[in-house]
Design a protein around this nucleic acid. Structure first.
Lengths: 196, 196
DNA sequence: ACCTATGTGGATCGCTGATCCGAATAATCG
DNA sequence: CGATTATTCGGATCAGCGATCCACATAGGT
């Protein structure tokens, strides 16, 4: 890659990160190009679609989440491992308002630039789920795709200004449904807030 | 209202219903106007915003759901009443792909044309929840807003092509979390599908 | 039959992402 | 170091969106 091209690419990624943090992933690509003092065509050549831009931007985040899942696979409490990883996933999406919709669309679209990352993430979650199920700590009538969908739904809640205040509490509610709660019926130990 | 205006208004509503059924609530307003052989300005004068159009279109559905909730309030099993009404709500949204996002935005925006309908719906659900809680059949650490958010999240799942196949099953999972399952721990009786 | 208040829709605006292509420039070769 | 070539750039343009304006048509009461 030519030096000026790489410079533009890196600069665009930096600017896109800022813009998305401010306005969410649906920010105007023209805005990003303007703020990077670059033509819109240049942005679109480096990243032909919004998904391609996001994939480049979120690649390290995806890797971090996947790595964390790998580390948790040897934890000695598979239920806590699963729930804490799911919580991390939901928490991570809050940094990229609107990303959930794109990921939900990408998981079944092999053409999407985000497809591979989403599939990897789902597989990582599935492994944690399977381990918890094997230990009898998670209900057995769900699979990795179910967990991915539940996390997506909870992440979407966090994206909706009117519903976001409930997202944390509802995560606990849903977590209590995933776990079989052999220890405690209301799964109080995963609760992070203290509403009645 | 002048007779020709009313004719246009009714015709627009009919055409909009068809178009939304085909393409979801984000269908181009220009398309609706075109298909109704009417200028875009005419559509926008009758319904200044997309929300206003939807409110007019969905008004009878909202009334039906609210009425059903009222009827269920005298049911002799508050838990079944709550869950079956929630299921109706989720099922209803599948007829209007994408409506969930608009409703989630409207519930806290008094300016939205959909605001009143959403608030009414939430209140109806809250009454059914309170009744189930009073009978000790629903967990006590959630309120009407939580249930509204959960239904919205499940409805959103049904809107995502990749996640929709799981929506029915995940409704049961979430329902089992809402109910205290005094009768059966895994709330198997609300399950409608038979996946392992 | 007229007259006015009401309704209409083509034209236009600013915005979106997509695409084209002449101009600019980095990298390479003589 | 200078010339050549392949790459990159970005202004211009296109079709689409919703919003708005206003000259024109017409329904309905007088």
């Amino acid at each position: 890659m030519r030096a000026d091209a790489k410079k533009n690419r890196d600069h665009l990624l930096a600017v896109a990160g800022t813009a998305i943090a401010e306005q969410g992933v649906e920010v105007s690509l023209r805005d990003i190009a303007r703020r990077a003092d670059v033509g819109l065509a240049t942005l679109l050549r480096h990243f032909p679609t919004r998904e391609a831009l996001l994939d480049a931007l979120l690649h390290t985040s995806f890797e971090a989440l996947t790595a964390k899942a790998g580390a948790l696979e040897t934890s000695d409490s598979p239920d806590e491992a699963l729930v804490s990883w799911l919580r991390d996933c939901v928490a991570w999406t809050t940094e990229y308002r609107g990303v959930t919709v794109l990921m939900a669309a990408a998981i079944e679209d092999p053409e999407s630039a985000l497809h591979a990352s989403c599939v990897t993430l789902r597989a990582a979650g599935a492994r944690l789920l399977t381990r918890a199920q094997a230990a009898g700590l998670a209900r057995s009538d769900i699979d990795g795709a179910d967990v991915f969908a539940l996390v997506a739904a909870l992440a979407w809640l966090g994206d909706q200004p009117a519903l976001a205040p409930r997202a944390g509490h509802l995560f606990d509610v849903v977590a209590s449904a995933i776990l079989t709660g052999a220890a405690s019926g209301d799964a109080g130990w995963v609760t992070t807030d203290s509403r009645p």
